[in-house]
Design a protein around this nucleic acid. Sequence first.
DNA 1: TTGCATACATACAGCCTGTATGTTAATGAT
DNA 2: ATCATTAACATACAGGCTGTATGTATGCAA
Lengths: 197, 197
Amino acid sequence: MQQIKHRTNEARTAATRAALIGAARTLFVEKGYGETGTPEIVAAANVTRGALYHHFADKADLFRAVVTAEAAALAEAIDRATIPVAAPRTALIEGTGAYFAAMTVPGRARLLLLDGPAVLGPQTMAELDRSLGGATLRQGLAEAMRRVDPVELDALADCLSAAFDRAALAIAGGADPAPYCAAITRLIDATLRTGRP
Amino acid sequence: MQQIKHRTNEARTAATRAALIGAARTLFVEKGYGETGTPEIVAAANVTRGALYHHFADKADLFRAVVTAEAAALAEAIDRATIPVAAPRTALIEGTGAYFAAMTVPGRARLLLLDGPAVLGPQTMAELDRSLGGATLRQGLAEAMRRVDPVELDALADCLSAAFDRAALAIAGGADPAPYCAAITRLIDATLRTGRP
DNA sequence: TTGCATACATACAGCCTGTATGTTAATGAT
DNA sequence: ATCATTAACATACAGGCTGTATGTATGCAA
């Protein structure tokens, strides 16, 4: 630990930011945003509060960085698992399966579905979702239901994703995944059936 | 304001509790749970912090009282609007309409759908919902879809109510209600259609 | 009326947040 | 290679907030 000579500034910044985000993620998941103090975070990251407030505007800004990283990891996991498929219905089913699988990462549901919306607001979370994960669900629905008004399709995608979120949260909370998967599959199939008479 | 002689203890308690819950509700809605301090609350309620901590264990306990009252008001509004109807499909559509109408009360969506779950936890909110609003949606679904496994029906009701919640939150956030109502109606009809082949 | 419990009010200790200021090391220009 | 500048911290401080401990007055029951 003594050979740390001539470290470039860029590397220093990356290291401390990563340490802070990692430690903060652990504590935010364990105790929640409100119950986690910055002294605790910097102690876990082996830095001082000065470093924290040098890299982040405030505690909420650090939390935003944690949530953004988590959303990016989620999007990447889904992208990685989603192989381009022909049938739109299959794509939707597989997509939600990938979503559920990626959502089992410990703490992810709490960060993205519980504390995130409360601390950063729903519109910030929606923008984040749009900029990263993209409108995968919306596109899948659009492809499968051509005759639906695009404005209603937006709302429909929003409501369906809320249903998926609730299922993911319930599973993360210890619920049996099977009935939720069945319910979600039923919901998708039922919705698709209304798109083409 | 000087004629307050010989007030019974019960009345005093009811008055201060009501003043605290009312003031807290206003501030929690305006600024959120985390950004609202107890000094602010007691100033708005014209009491001292001593009174607050005499009637409530801590700030979260006061918040719980606010959320409980809000959930009770929501349940009562829905009960009041829901006239016993014969057709189960009509009952479901009317029920969600009553839910949306009751959810337009300013601040209600934030309290019940945003800060509530984050501060009190999803299971506490679910228990609260169960003890007050009851399983209206679940019962309606069960009546319309006899052949579905009860366990899956629970999950289905949970997911559907999440979709309703998202719609209510979006509308409370300024979104156009029309497409959301259309999407929800479509979702209900599509789901019901899967219950009876 | 007298003793007790309730309903507060006040004071205090500890923690946490954000900022201001100081210090060291890297970077860019000469 | 040197020097000025700036980034990357570290430390110290002020203010506010939470929860508790203690004190007081009023309703209540015997």
